[in-house]
């Protein structure tokens, strides 16, 4: 899994069946210092369970395991948000997204 910050929302009404009730959000992965690293991705999130939104600090999972966090697990999803982070620490120091807000 990895840390990321949510930078936006994406709407896609036409989607593979089984993805009903799943929201898509744009995320920017973060390194262990909270700095942006790598390209942005689009993550699936079951917003009825996890209320993530733009500006949030989240934990994500990729690969086929990403689908396991969704109501229907046999779906073509390869990135998902699995939780909103309250606190993350590394060697005693707090990790916070270096860039707050979105696409800054």
């Amino acid at each position: 899994m990895y840390l990321a910050r949510v930078i936006g929302r994406l709407v896609a009404t036409v989607r593979y069946e089984g993805l009903d009730g799943v929201a898509f959000q744009l995320i920017q992965p973060l390194d262990e210092h909270g700095e942006d690293t790598g390209d942005t991705q689009v993550a699936a999130v079951q917003t009825s369970e996890i209320s993530a939104g733009p500006g949030d600090f989240v934990t994500c999972v990729d690969g086929r395991e990403a689908a396991l966090v969704l109501p229907e697990t046999y779906v073509p999803v390869d990135v998902a948000i699995i939780g909103v982070v309250e606190e993350a620490t590394r060697l005693g120091t707090n990790i916070q997204p270096a860039t707050y807000g979105a696409g800054a």
Partner: peptide, 13 residues
């Protein structure tokens, strides 16, 4: 696999 057709997206609104 293509699994959704995008209508729109926003970055921080």
């Amino acid at each position: 696999v293509v699994m959704a057709v995008v209508d729109s997206w926003d970055i921080d609104g």
